[in-house]
Write a protein that binds this DNA or RNA. Structure first.
Length: 491
RNA sequence: GAGCCGCUAGCUCAGUAGGUAGAGCACCUGACUUUUAAUCAGGUGGUCGUUGGUUCGAUCCCAACGCGGCUCACCA
């Protein structure tokens, strides 16, 4: 048995005393008839509330109390917000008031009462009955500074959510963003599907997977790094507009913008091109921003972001010229580009492919500067093994990535639907893997077989939901938009 | 994986140029029937992240380790 501090022992003694007095500190028969929002909806606009105009029965956590001997004000927090309750000894009775005085901040309580306005005009509930619903054994953080220790906030998110209203707000917004996207897709006749999270061959992205094992099948399985190849199989199957909003898992570093499990919205639309998806993306994200924030102009970490259309569109090479300050000649020439890459501190080997080289230069010089929403197009084929080659230049593909606030938010392309070309690209990836590239794709014979049946001309896109939520909630870290971010074991 | 920073009461933080620690909030006792971080009076509460080392003596100095944050690397 661990030793408890005096503070914790006091609470436990109170529970014992309640049991001894024949009071269950964890009753289960109370019905919550109303929320704080109902009271505001009914009387928020009324200044002169007639006495006992209505009766509300609410429940929630007591998060503050101001006592005056024979009366007290308490703050109750429920799923809709906070409300003030006014409790008087002469109204609820001596016995009930004595029990009430032993409630602690953090206890879950239920109360019935009528709405009224206090001297200072605050809408409150004048309590006629009050009941303890759950005794809390641990004290909540301080009312003024709240909980700021980030480790405790992430490990004990429940406490964070109790005491930090801003945190609640972020997750309300997250839920709204996801449902707006879902609604947007369904309205455009996309079918929501669920594809496997456990893959025999991890594919659809360049990333290291988590490995797990199925006992009965005695088989290695990988947590998916992307749903892409399954979603395109569905397009082959005739679901020519599909989307999935779900988790991906990548066995890589953790940072302010990376969590090992993160949420992606991937969708595929047959008979569309990556250019169609740029318009589609603008439309969707503007809709979401408008609905969630009520505006297309919003701050992110001190920068002013504007979603007002049209969004900037640049090719990879143009972006390097514009933000790297070098002439197009340098970008177009492999040797000059290599020298330039080294001059800006990139460690690139002599035999790096040209496509990879300019991609790295782009990421170094341009990506951090893409603060306003920007589409970057014309990625090298070398770094895009699932994208359709451009009709103008087979060294480049029909692809864009979408950037905002200096980070990648989405990736989209016209899908490679030529099975012969796809097989060659896979083979090149397999070679790269043999050469030590741990993130290179695996050969997926079944995917090739699906393409051989015929994938209609299709465009597909993945949008990082966590990063979108960060942007729209002005959150500096991905951990602020994931309820339970991954941390090391405690102690 | 590397560098830098942090870890003191339930929470938010001081502090000790080495002599075993303080405040505010919370909690307990008392007063108070319209408060808004209520107020007033009194009080309880700490293996100073862990383990070693130096020292007569370590929360403080040194080392290792743990956990977290930021930056970099990897990546979306």
């Amino acid at each position: 048995m661990e030793e408890l501090s005096e503070l914790l022992l006091q609470r436990r003694r109170k529970v014992d005393e309640l049991w001894s007095a024949g009071i269950n500190p964890y009753p289960n028969s109370f019905r919550q008839e109303n929320t704080s929002a109902d009271i505001v909806a009914g009387f928020g606009e009324i200044t002169e509330i007639p006495e006992k105009a209505a009766e509300f029965t609410v429940a929630g956590r007591m998060i503050a109390r101001r006592s005056f001997g024979k009366a007290a004000f308490i703050q109750l927090q429920d799923r809709k917000g906070r409300m003030q309750l006014y409790v008087r000894k002469d109204v609820i009775g001596d016995e009930a008031f004595d029990i009430f005085e032993n409630y602690d901040i953090g206890d879950i309580i239920g109360a019935t009462g009528w709405p009224f306005r206090t001297k200072t005009g605050e809408l409150s509930l004048h309590v006629t009955e009050i009941t303890l619903l759950t005794k809390s054994l641990l004290p909540l953080p301080e009312k003024f500074h709240g909980l700021t220790d980030v480790e405790t906030r992430y490990r004990q998110r429940y406490v964070d959510l109790i005491v930090n209203p801003d945190v609640r707000e972020v997750f309300f917004k997250r839920a709204k963003i996801v449902s707006l996207i879902r609604e947007f897709m369904v309205k455009r006749d996309f079918l929501e599907v669920e594809t496997p999270m456990m893959h025999q061959i991890p594919g659809g992205a360049a990333a290291r997977p988590f490995i797990t094992h199925h006992n009965t099948l005695d088989m290695e399985l990988y947590l998916r790094i992307a749903p892409e190849l399954y979603l395109k199989r569905l397009v082959v199957g005739g679901f020519d507009r599909v989307f999935e909003i779900n988790r991906n898992f990548r066995n890589e570093g953790i940072s302010v913008r990376h969590n090992p499990e993160f949420t992606m919205m991937e969708f595929y639309q047959a008979y569309a091109t990556y250019e169609d998806l740029m318009d589609f993306t603008e439309e969707m994200l503007c809709h979401v921003a408008e609905q969630v924030l009520g505006t297309l102009d919003f701050p992110y970490q001190g920068q002013d972001i504007s979603f007002v259309r049209p969004w900037k569109r640049l090719t990879v090479k143009e972006a390097i010229v514009e933000y790297g300050g070098v002439p197009l000649k340098t970008v177009n020439d492999r040797e000059l580009a290599l020298t330039y890459a080294r001059s800006i501190g990139l460690e690139v080997s002599e035999n790096i492919g040209y496509g990879r080289l300019i991609t790295e230069i782009f990421e170094e010089v341009a990506e951090p500067k893409l603060i306003q929403p920007t589409f970057i197009t014309q990625y090298p084929t070398e770094v895009s093994p699932l994208s359709r080659k451009s009709d103008n230049d087979p060294e480049f593909v029909d692809r864009f990535e979408f950037f905002c606030a200096g980070r990648e938010m989405a990736n989209a392309f016209s899908e490679l639907n030529d099975p012969v070309d796809q097989k060659e690209r896979f083979l090149a990836q397999v070679e790269a893997k043999k050469g030590g590239d741990e993130e290179a794709h695996y050969m997926d014979e079944d995917y090739i077989r699906a393409l051989e049946y015929g994938l209609p001309p299709t465009a597909g896109e993945g949008i990082g939901i966590d990063r979108l939520v960060m942007l729209l909630t002005d959150s500096p870290s991905i951990r602020d938009v994931i309820l339970f971010p991954q941390l090391r074991k405690e102690k």
